[in-house]
Design a protein around this nucleic acid. Structure first.
Lengths: 354, 354
DNA sequence: AGTAGAATTTGAACCGATCCAAACCAGATG
DNA sequence: CATCTGGTTTGGATCGGTTCAAATTCTACT
């Protein structure tokens, strides 16, 4: 009963049963074409040798298809289970995979080198890439692999990259218009990263020169609507966060240290918006009484926050579903799908005081 | 630029570069042993042909190791992202995988047949099996595969199956003792499934004859402590739920239709406990004023529920981590690890009124 | 120049299956 | 008895790489 090496191959079973490996193979993959007597003999031999069926490693090479799609990110693997946005998208991906019988392979790594190796050696038929922030390297690696792949969220303008996302400009504009419509004129923007790694207050010029397309477009949308409303876009404070608690709180410290703090906060993700809500609550600043907050994404946590978060909802699950369909039904043409966002008004926004 | 067939193999590159495939292979896997001039030549040829590096499908066969661990469940794939218990365990698994550079392959399927196929053809080095309810078939399939595997949660008594779980008897006992210690004497149990597919009120005898080891042990623990406290275990109403909202609510309807409804509810999962909290709130029954509720698992949602949930916390992330270590460090011996649970007292329990 | 020793390169074997054309075999038909 | 037919079985080719012993080419030194 000790741990032995036990390389039982199909060929061993065939020999033991006294048939050719071709026949042995058929017993497992197309049993109906093998004469019953022989079939049983082979099965018996397999049983005796402890053969657990054809090793997929072998089949794979011949079949070509792995029947699994890879989902890649530059974040740690736990991102898929911890991040609310990722989770909802993954739900959509799961659903589509379940429907088609495909498996999901999660690909990530602690460091850049490992990531490269993992992407290169992942056994998948295609990739869905979460290229939220700083995904350029990731997209590069994935494309090198030569398999069909789709980027979620338009991190890039590159038309040669298939992608599924939303119209960030329109979404952001809708958020800002909602606030402007309520009467707000003093805005502040909690931005996502401009180009990777940075954080801190940003000038109007710096913000306008953002590299990441998603961030850039949202800023453009916000400022566009603000201009429409007659406010001066150049006077809107912008703070670059890293989509985490620390930098979000730092951003709020920055905003509220000003003489005339904002009455309306435009957060580029619900995560940031929720951290903002925490900070405001801790400071005793009433929301939406003194300050209105609107997020971006539409994660479930926004429904139950205190107050519930007004936000621009992306069809996250739908994005996941479409991505899978795009990979599985890849026909050689790269497409970029833009889905609609929706303004969901909840309790975190109202007319400004006075 | 149209979609062409493009099977560029290493051999093609080798030929184009005028070297043997052995050398071509080395250029990619051990570049340092190839003379620079040759290396560049091969790389150039690869570039020209659009070769994206060695196909892992080929390497795999020789290498043997896939460098990924499979996580299997009989639920739909979205279970991994939606279920709070699963998510925390997956976080632990992710962490351990990140540390060792392994990938994660999620395996599941809509129907039994697909599941069997998927388990049999998953490209993994080992399996972690979520065999919560009705996992016997799943465990059977997995074992047939002949790879190392670990069951999470002792769904079975079978000593030949490696498993990681908690002492359900002790955990349940601790929950019931906590309530008894507060003075409760009228208990009710919201149970998980007894043997698969069933739900509804259950007699003492039926409940004691539960097939699923986890459920059985928790019932034993609850009733043991209840007996200790001097209450009659045979008079404790037990309702078998399917760990979902509908059956949980049905169970509560059942309990509260009785002349003397319980003052203490023992829920076998936090999920059920949280559904119970919802139901009680909707009925205007104060918790913990009129009724105390204690859950089992320790999911994050229990911290923020209204009221926060008293529960028996399992070290979920730790279970995930250990499972990965067990697979990766498999030495041929099967082990069953029992981890400690912890009673976390929060706001959903207090002394009974009067 | 001659040669041992190091550095490279080659080519065949192998990994574990599936696939398929050809061979085989038994019974039916002419 | 030869031929045809349909169901089975066989064995070689193939999938796309890695590996390693042997062959070849370089280097350095006497």
């Amino acid at each position: 009963m000790d741990a032995k090496i036990k390389p039982v191959r199909l060929a061993d079973v065939a020999k033991a049963a006294g048939v050719s490996h071709g026949t042995a193979s058929n017993v497992f993959s197309r049993p109906e074409i093998v004469r019953e007597e022989v079939r049983e003999r082979v099965r018996a031999a397999a049983g005796k040798l402890g053969y657990g069926g054809p090793d997929p490693k072998g089949r794979l090479l011949r079949a070509g298809k792995v029947n699994a799609i890879g989902v890649a990110t530059a974040e740690p693997l736990s991102y898929f289970f911890d991040d609310p946005f990722a989770r909802v998208v993954m739900s959509g991906i799961s659903e589509a995979c379940d429907r088609t019988g495909a498996g999901i392979a999660l690909v990530s790594a602690a460091n850049e080198e490992q990531l490269a190796w993992n992407i290169r050696s992942a056994l998948v038929d295609g990739f869905i890439v979460f290229c939220l922030e700083g995904g350029s390297r990731l997209v590069e690696l994935t494309r090198e692999r030569g398999l069909p792949f789709v980027a979620l969220d338009f991190g890039f303008d590159d038309e040669r990259i298939a992608a599924i996302g939303v119209d960030d400009v329109a979404g952001a504009r809708r958020a800002a218009r909602h606030l402007a419509g309520l009467g707000h004129r003093r805005f502040a923007i909690l931005s996502l990263e401009f180009d990777g790694g940075g954080h801190g207050p940003a000038s109007f010029e710096r913000a306008s020169a953002t590299v990441y397309a998603g961030t850039r477009d949202r800023i453009a949308g916000y400022l566009g609507a603000i201009t429409e409303a007659g406010a001066d876009p150049a006077s809107v404070p912008i703070y670059e966060t890293q989509n985490d608690k620390a930098t979000t709180h730092a951003g709020l410290e920055y905003f509220f240290a000003a003489e005339t703090p904002p009455t309306a906060i435009l957060a580029m993700s619900d995560k940031v918006a929720l951290y903002a809500l925490d900070w405001l609550a801790a400071r005793g600043i009433p929301v939406p009484g003194d300050v209105s907050v609107v997020g971006f994404d539409g994660v479930p946590e926004g429904e139950t926050s205190e107050p519930p978060l007004t936000t621009i909802a992306q069809p996250m699950a739908e994005m996941g579903r479409r991505a899978v369909e795009m990979i599985l039904g890849f026909d050689g043409t790269i497409r970029r799908e833009t889905l609609d966002v929706e303004l969901i008004v909840r309790g975190s926004t109202s007319a400004p005081r006075g």
